[in-house]
Every structure is written in structure tokens, then in C-alpha cells.
């Protein structure tokens, strides 16, 4: 087990390096640079040259790559080209916000979708099941920016229940934070719930028809009990795996939520840094997303192994 994790971690580091190199190569190919972006229409040859020299944009690509990679190995991500602040500091203020958003959305999405999925699987083809299926399909078929804007209209503009903007920095206390987070979390969890509820239902229905579960039910165990005690543990692997994947989709959805609610998170930072050609920030963001995903997959695998004894020896 430990060996497996160590092996996976090593492979993960290798993946990170590959992603870093890939992102570096792609970002080198972007037209324009940070100096031109900052000076915009007012650039003159002279000011542009001075700014480029200040930012070290004149160095050859290979040198910049070596410098950048060397810095990262020492834990130094460099300075933001857009505003001259250390990348670690810029990201440090945004990352907790993104983690909070993703964490709360997960906390809402997973129990709700598990409950919906289990309930539907218990009574397939019931009115409840049909309704859940219908709403799930609807939720996952609607573009996330539309869901986000609709929730603003309904809960904020029309009813005035919740704030339309997520001014997280000025939220007061725990209650204030929850109020501010409510709409982004709702917008973000809806589509994830749609996906995960469907997955859970499908996996569980499959499991319930397995012989050993059927035997348990025949022996007098209630179907719900059978589902939770017998089918679910064996299905934990696929469900957790699927959850990790929908969380990846969730990260993509975060972009829209952060833009629409003016939520100062990491994806908005990355969108900005692409626009301003702030490569150090952009590259650091890419690495964080990649690392986050790898950790998710690793956790999913470990949970799957722990839940299924047959896999334990396979590592």
C-alpha cells in the first residue's frame, strides 16, 4: 500500500514536470507579451524595450525555462509581470478562496447527489426517480454560465434573498460568509449534482442486481440496508472515482462562477493572467490545477483500494 502511494507520488511529480514544460512551451508561443499588454496602445519602442528588459523578457527561451524551473525547485515562483508582486503572494490570496468554493460545493454536492442517487435506485421508475432523472439531465445539460446568471436573477435581483456578488473579503463572520457563498455554491453544485446523482443511481442499480446483494435481500435484509451495507462499499471505488472526475468538471465550471459573481479565485486569476500575458502567474496556476487533480485521483484510488480488499494486494 505504502509502496503504491510512493510510486504514484513519484509518477505525479513526473507528470507535474511534464505539465510545467508543456505549459511553458505553449505560453512561449502566445502572441504578444506582458510588456506590450501593460503599455497597450500607448507603447513606444523605447518604453517597450525598457519594460521588456526589466521583466527579463529578452532572455532566450531556454534560459528563462531553466531559471523558472530552478526557481520552482527552490519554492520560488518568481514575480508577477502584471504587478510585480511575488507569484506566491498573489496566489496565496486567491487559492484559499477557490478551495473554499470548491470545498463547500463538494460538501453540498456529494451528500445531496448520493442521497438522490440512492433514493432513485431504490425505486427505479417511480415518480421520484423520473423527476430526479429529469432534473439531473436538465442540470447537466444547461451551460454553467446560464445557471449562474439565472440563480442571480431569481435569488438576488427578483427576490433580494442573497447577494448577487460574492464579496468574500468583506463578508462578516461565519453567517456572512455562508450568505456570500450561497449563490456561487448553488450555481456550481447544481450541474455536479446532476452528474453525480445519475452516476450513483446507475452504479447502484448495477450493484443491486449482483448475486450477493440479491442473496442478502432474499435473506430478509431491506433493500436500502442492502444497498448501503453491501452494494455501496463495493461500489465506493467507482463512485469516488467518478466524483473525482466530476470535480475536475467542477474546476472548469468555477471559471464562469468566478467571473459572474466577481469572486476572487484562482481560475479568474488565470483567465486574467492569460489576457495580460503574465506567464509566471499563469504557469503557477496551471501547476496548481494539475497538482490538485492528481491529488484527487490519488485519493480516489486509495479510497477505492481501502474499500475493496481484493485490490489491496494488487499494488
Amino acid at each position: 500500500m505504502t509502496r503504491l502511494i510512493a510510486k504514484r507520488l513519484l509518477l505525479g511529480l513526473l507528470t507535474l514536470w511534464l505539465v510545467a514544460t508543456l505549459v511553458f512551451a505553449v505560453s512561449g508561443a502566445l502572441p504578444g507579451d506582458a510588456a506590450a499588454s501593460i503599455l497597450g496602445q500607448d507603447a513606444t519602442a523605447e518604453t517597450l524595450a525598457a519594460l521588456r528588459a526589466q521583466m527579463g523578457l529578452d532572455d532566450p527561451l531556454a534560459l528563462r525555462y531553466a531559471h523558472w524551473l530552478g526557481g520552482i525547485l527552490q519554492g520560488d515562483f518568481g514575480l508577477s509581470l502584471a504587478n510585480g508582486r511575488p507569484v506566491a503572494e498573489v496566489i496565496g490570496t486567491r487559492l484559499p478562496n477557490s478551495l473554499l468554493l470548491a470545498g463547500l460545493s463538494t460538501l453540498v454536492a456529494i451528500p445531496v447527489s448520493l442521497a438522490l442517487g440512492i433514493a432513485s435506485a431504490m425505486r427505479p421508475d417511480s415518480v421520484f426517480d423520473r423527476l430526479t432523472t429529469f432534473l439531473s439531465v436538465l442540470a447537466l445539460s444547461t451551460p454553467s454560465f446560464l445557471i449562474a446568471t439565472l440563480t442571480v436573477l431569481v435569488f438576488s435581483v427578483w427576490s433580494g434573498l442573497l447577494p448577487a456578488l460574492s464579496n468574500i473579503d468583506r463578508a462578516e463572520g461565519f453567517g456572512g460568509t455562508l450568505r456570500v457563498m450561497a449563490l456561487p455554491v448553488l450555481a456550481l453544485s447544481l450541474s455536479v449534482i446532476g452528474q453525480m446523482a445519475r452516476m450513483t443511481r446507475a452504479i447502484l442499480i448495477g450493484a443491486l442486481s449482483e448475486p450477493y446483494v440479491e442473496t442478502a435481500i432474499l435473506k430478509g435484509t431491506s433493500p436500502l440496508r442492502a444497498a448501503i451495507l453491501h452494494a455501496l462499499p463495493n461500489m465506493a471505488g467507482p463512485i469516488v472515482n467518478a466524483s473525482a472526475l466530476s470535480l475536475n468538471a467542477l474546476i472548469s465550471g468555477v471559471v464562469f462562477v468566478e467571473v459572474i459573481f466577481a469572486y476572487p479565485g484562482l481560475t479568474k486569476l488565470m483567465v486574467d493572467s492569460v489576457a495580460t500575458r503574465d506567464l509566471p502567474v499563469m504557469q503557477a496556476c496551471a501547476l496548481i490545477f494539475c497538482a490538485g487533480f492528481l491529488i484527487l485521483v490519488l485519493v480516489a484510488d486509495i479510497v477505492a483500494i481501502l474499500a475493496n480488499p481484493r485490490l489491496r494486494s494488487a499494488g
Partner: peptide
């Protein structure tokens, strides 16, 4: 898997 670890919207954006 490496390719897959980048969120799609962001990858497409870049």
C-alpha cells in the same frame, strides 16, 4: 493522464 489533468475550459482558453 497528464493531458487530462488540466481543466478543459482553461486548457482551451490558453
Amino acid at each position: 493522464d497528464t493531458f487530462n489533468s488540466l481543466p478543459s475550459t482553461i486548457f482551451a482558453m490558453v
